[in-house]
Nucleic acid binder design. Structure first.
Lengths: 241, 241
DNA sequence: CCAAAAGTGTTATATTTACACCCATGC
DNA sequence: GCATGGGTGTAAATATAACACTTTTGG
């Protein structure tokens, strides 16, 4: 090694360990679908000057974990969910985005089956609540911007990959699926065209069951078949709604 | 404010300022197109154990700049380029990705007109060089992975947005444009269909000039019209190759 | 028998693909 | 005159969009 190279390394070492450090956090935009509406899980914020607003769920990244692991940890510890769909959105690094000092944050979004599990009741007493996405007008910090960017990214990806199923129960009717896309994308879809298209993709299993407790003709129930999708994808097939 | 809230804030303050800090860097995947090949600008690496490899251009993020500003600064100071197309890719946060300590990095990719300016000669003596993307088999640190993820993202975005023009001179022939897409996407395109489609989009201006110094019938030259594209985009038009 | 959603086909239109020859220029 | 890329149109296949009625169930 040249002494010049050694010098460079010393500069780096100094910088890495002192001058140029920053706090790094993750913020999770947790989407859920319920009651024909797209919702985001938020918590009451107790940090001035945002005491009366809600914030996304997040935490600082620890030294022994990746940002993805940090996001998974936030999800697990604050909501009890494990192995949920999680996707990196982007970094937000505005210099004054956090009132307590410089915090660079990495945004993730995840898709949750609200109705599953216990989420709804268990966590309301921790200051957590589901807000309808299109009724949110502001959030603490730059979290509105983060939420909005995440929404945009999710809207794009839900058309290109079969991830919408994460928002539905395992068994669902075709109308439920259609309504999901209509609500998330804020569009209207033609019933017959939608059904033809989805059935044509060949990634739904008719599980031979029907709706129960409905006061009209019960619909057939389907389930998304991940393994068939994985196989098809390898052969150049692409989901595209 | 409750004392509980105050306590939380104190914990945060401590964590932000001490325990949970990390060095944050940016790494730039600078794509250029020349000689019918897609290239990436890299520099010789002098840091063990990567002394004989090349690395992407990057630097630590300063306390008074966003990651985007840091990426722009890297581009300007190391290559002399200003106002180039720059797009965030994603964060790479593997715990041991850097030999000198924990460094979380934000990857950006940019698209450069190689032939423009002086880049080719001016910067070769700084240890910079253009490598053909598909001849690269390894890079220092996790830079190969970063380059590869950036390439994938760029390949996707070049089909969805009119950004390929950043890789070409201001004036170009339709064949040049076609070859660009063929090389970048690693596909073959039909000449007539390609021309019909591109002309049909209405975002190219025939500038009334023709190629010079070619030993065959000279091609018409076109220029991308950003302002027409911006107008069309507002009315729901979408570029899609 | 009424309300509510389930389920089903056809036609028109737009988009995509495949494909082959003559033209203009420099040497 | 020949080599090189420039430039052009049509037909078939595929994908998308628009649209209305009958069926089944619970109450």
């Amino acid at each position: 090694m040249t002494s010049n190279a050694q010098q460079n390394i010393n500069v780096w070492l100094t910088q890495i360990n002192t001058d140029f450090k920053s706090a790094v956090s993750v913020d999770c935009v947790i989407f859920g679908y319920d009651d024909n509406a797209l919702k985001v899980l938020v918590s009451d914020c107790d940090m001035p000057p945002f005491e009366h607003q809600c914030s996304l769920l997040g935490d600082l990244v620890h030294s022994d974990e990746t940002t993805e692991q940090a996001a998974s940890r936030v999800l697990l510890t604050k909501t009890g969910f494990e192995n949920v769909f999680l996707e990196q959105v982007q970094v937000f690094s505005g210099i004054n985005r956090h009132p307590l000092g410089r915090v660079i944050t990495v945004a993730y979004y995840s898709l949750i089956k609200i109705t599953d599990d216990h989420l709804t009741h268990i966590h309301t007493h921790k200051g957590l609540k589901w807000l309808e996405v299109n009724k949110i007008s502001s959030l603490a910090f730059d979290h509105y911007e983060i939420m909005h960017s995440s929404l945009r990214k999710m809207q794009k990806e839900i058309r290109e990959q079969p991830i919408g199923f994460h928002l539905l129960p395992q068994k669902f009717s075709l109308l439920q699926l259609q309504r999901l896309y209509e609500v998330v994308l804020n569009i209207e879809l033609d019933k017959r065209n939608f059904r033809r298209k989805l059935k044509g993709l060949g990634i739904l299993n008719d599980i031979g069951e029907i709706e129960e407790l409905v006061s009209h003709r019960p619909a057939r129930l389907y389930a998304f078949d991940q393994s068939v999708y994985d196989k098809k994808k390898k052969t150049g097939f692409s989901f595209d709604l």
